[in-house]
């Protein structure tokens, strides 16, 4: 059993949990994910690692309730436990590998996070800071109330730009607008990491392709085992079939076939779930994550 040591509600529908999982904490690096299963009847739910403490043997996860399983997970309290907690899975972010340090030091890095994607960006920025590498972070949200991790991020980012769609906090506009604004004032980047809803990552990639910034995105297709055994997570990257759980989850965003990926993610939505998603994605299209510019 993997005990939940603490639980916090960060924003509407967004929860943070610290879970005891020594093996995962011992080995993991930013960019990797875990699979959690609540109990015997639960699903295997993939979630990105948002922080880790090697000494304490703990992993921090942040999740948004979107359907039945994440909803059920949100009812778990500190003191209770996950029956299964598997990881770390996937490959670490290319930026956060000791063997790439020299190359990484030469890069001008910008992170763009949308919605719940803020959480998995945090450990990457933190790792870079610990290795003396500065990074710019653009954090987007629909409004002030949905923002979280602002203080955490301030501590580790060289420059932090927060933007809200409605202007209730920080820059009035979306992350893509913010990036464009920085670019226009002469800031230059050559490596971007974007994590958030698929639609948001797609729009970030559209802009960074125009600006010529290499962009890594973290793909979150449907998964079952997370070890390369089922093929549920297959996505098209530059015409090649890749299994996101073992080849990813981070890929060159300019090569990802977004339309195919978005269609595949719909598979298990029930009629009800699909309606909910349409609703949500509808909002996303109006800048729900604060970054995608999907309404333009």
């Amino acid at each position: 059993m993997y005990q939940i040591l603490s639980k916090a509600k960060l924003a509407d529908k967004i929860f943070e949990m610290v879970v005891r999982a020594p093996r995962v904490a011992h080995k993991c690096l930013p960019g990797q994910f875990i699979i959690a299963k609540i109990d015997e009847t639960g699903e295997r739910i993939p979630l990105t690692i948002c922080d880790y403490d090697r000494e304490e043997g703990t992993i921090t996860i942040v999740f948004q309730t979107v359907g039945a399983s994440t909803e059920r997970m949100s009812f778990l309290e500190a003191g209770e436990a996950f029956e299964d907690f598997i990881g770390p899975l996937g490959r670490p972010s290319v930026l956060c590998l000791e063997e790439n340090l020299d190359k990484t030091r030469e890069k001008k890095i910008v992170f763009i996070c949308g919605g719940v994607g803020t959480a998995p960006i945090y450990p990457q920025v933190k790792w870079l800071k610990e290795h003396g590498i500065p990074a710019t972070v653009i954090m987007g949200s629909r409004n002030k109330d949905l923002l979280f991790y602002v203080d955490n991020m301030k501590e580790v980012a060289e420059h932090l730009y927060v933007c809200t769609d409605d202007g209730s906090y920080g820059f009035h506009g979306m992350g893509t607008n913010q990036l464009q604004a920085l670019w226009d004032q002469g800031d230059r980047f050559d490596h971007c990491v974007a994590i958030g809803p698929m639609i948001m990552m797609k729009f970030v990639c559209k802009l960074t392709a125009e600006l010529g910034i290499h962009t890594e995105v973290s793909m979150n297709p449907i998964m079952v085992d997370g070890t390369g055994m089922c093929g549920a997570c297959r996505i098209l990257v530059g015409d090649e079939v890749k299994f996101a759980c073992v080849d990813g989850p981070e890929f060159d965003g300019h090569k990802v076939d977004w339309d195919a990926a978005m269609v595949r993610q719909q598979q298990y939505k029930t009629a009800e779930g699909r309606a909910m998603l349409a609703l949500k994605e509808g909002k996303t299209h109006h800048g729900g994550c604060g970054n995608c510019g999907g309404d333009r």
């Binding site: 070890t227 055994m229 089922c230 093929g231 297959r234 195919a260």
Partner: peptide
């Protein structure tokens, strides 16, 4: 455990599974 696909058009469509996924 690594499943093979045929590499024919349409294999990425929703409703195409590896036997491993379906059985798992």
């Amino acid at each position: 455990g690594l499943p093979r696909f045929m590499g024919i058009p349409g294999e990425q469509a929703n409703g195409v599974f590896s036997a491993n996924e379906f059985l798992t």
